[in-house]
C-alpha cells in the first residue's frame, strides 16, 4: 500500500514538474504556475511545500498524507513564448481540477495538449517584420529606414534561429546579432540609403530586448516572489548588456563616431 502511494505521488510530481516547465517555457508567470501546482496538489491530496523558479530551473517540493517529502527539479529551456499552447495548458489544469483523472493518465493528457498547431516560420517572420516596421515608424524612421529595418529583421531572425538550433548561449547570439545590425545600419547610412541610424538600431534592438521577461521580473518582485524577480532581472540585464556590447564592437570597427549614439 505504501509503495503504491509513493508511486502515485511520484507520478503526480513528475507530471507537475513537466507541466511547470511547459507553462514557464510558453510564457506563464510564476504566480499562475504556483496557483496551478497548489490546486492540482490539493486534488491528489498532496501539499505543495515549495515552488521555486531560478531563471532556468524549476524546483517543486511536496509532501503526501504521511508527511513524506518528495522533490523534483527540471531545467526550463528558453525557446520562445507560445500563447496558444499556454491557453491549452491552462484548460488542462482546469480539466484536472474538475475531473481528477488517474495519475497514470496525466502525462498522456499533457502530451496530447502540447500537440497544437503553430505558425510556420515564414508567417512568424512576417509577424516580426510587421511589428518591427511599425515600431520603426513610431521611433521616427523614414521609409528607407524601414526598408533597412526589414532587411535587418530577416537577418536577425535567421541568426537567432541558427543559434537556437545550435543550442548556443543567448549571450553569444545577442552579441553577433547586434553586431550585424550595427554594421548594417552604419553601411546603409554611409551610402545614403538610410537616414535615421538611431531609429534603425533601437527598433532592431527591440527585437532582442527581453521586454516581457523584464516586466515579469518587476511583477514578481511586487508579488512577493522577490528572489525569482531579482534573478530574472539580472538575466534581463545581462542580455541587454550583450546587445549593447555587440553594437559597441560594430562602432569600434567603424570608428567611435560611426554611430551617433557613441
Amino acid at each position: 500500500m505504501s509503495n503504491k502511494t509513493n508511486n502515485r505521488t511520484e507520478t503526480v510530481l513528475n507530471f507537475l514538474v513537466c507541466l511547470c516547465r511547459e507553462m514557464l517555457e510558453n510564457g506563464a508567470n510564476l504566480e499562475r504556475v504556483n496557483i496551478s501546482v497548489r490546486r492540482i496538489c490539493r486534488c491528489y491530496r498532496l501539499k505543495a511545500v515549495s515552488v521555486f523558479y531560478g531563471g532556468s530551473v524549476i524546483s517543486i517540493g511536496v509532501t503526501d498524507e504521511k508527511e513524506n517529502y518528495y522533490s523534483r527539479q527540471e531545467s526550463v529551456p528558453n525557446t520562445g513564448i507560445h500563447l496558444y499552447k499556454l491557453g491549452k495548458l491552462n484548460l488542462l489544469v482546469h480539466e484536472i481540477i474538475n475531473k481528477n483523472p488517474k495519475p497514470d493518465t496525466l502525462m498522456d493528457m499533457l502530451y496530447e495538449t502540447l500537440m497544437v498547431k503553430s505558425y510556420s516560420n515564414s508567417i512568424q517572420l512576417l509577424g516580426y517584420i510587421v511589428a518591427m516596421i511599425s515600431l520603426g515608424r513610431i521611433f521616427g524612421g523614414s521609409w528607407t529606414d524601414l526598408l533597412v529595418i526589414s532587411f535587418n529583421t530577416v537577418v536577425l531572425y535567421f541568426i537567432t534561429m541558427f543559434f537556437s538550433r545550435a543550442k548556443l548561449n543567448r549571450i553569444i547570439s545577442n552579441v553577433v546579432a547586434m553586431m550585424f545590425c550595427g554594421f548594417s545600419a552604419i553601411i546603409f547610412t554611409r551610402v545614403g540609403i538610410a537616414k535615421n541610424i538611431s531609429a534603425i538600431i533601437i527598433t532592431n534592438a527591440f527585437y532582442l530586448i527581453p521586454g516581457i521577461p523584464m516586466v515579469n521580473a518587476v511583477r514578481n518582485i511586487f508579488c512577493g516572489n522577490e528572489m525569482n524577480g531579482i534573478i530574472e532581472m539580472v538575466k534581463v540585464l545581462l542580455e541587454v548588456i550583450t546587445i549593447v556590447a555587440g553594437l559597441y564592437i560594430a562602432s569600434l570597427l567603424f570608428g567611435a563616431d560611426a554611430l551617433s549614439l557613441f
Binding site: 510564457g27 513564448i81 507560445h82 500563447l83 496558444y84 499552447k85 491557453g87 503553430s118 505558425y119 508567417i123 512568424q124 512576417l126 509577424g127 516580426y128 517584420i129 510587421v130 511589428a131 518591427m132 516596421i133 511599425s134 515600431l135 513610431i138
Partner: peptide
C-alpha cells in the same frame, strides 16, 4: 500593427 505582429510571433490563434 505592432501588437498584431507580436501576437503572430507569440503564436496567438
Amino acid at each position: 500593427l505592432a501588437s498584431l505582429g507580436f501576437a503572430i510571433v507569440f503564436q496567438v490563434e
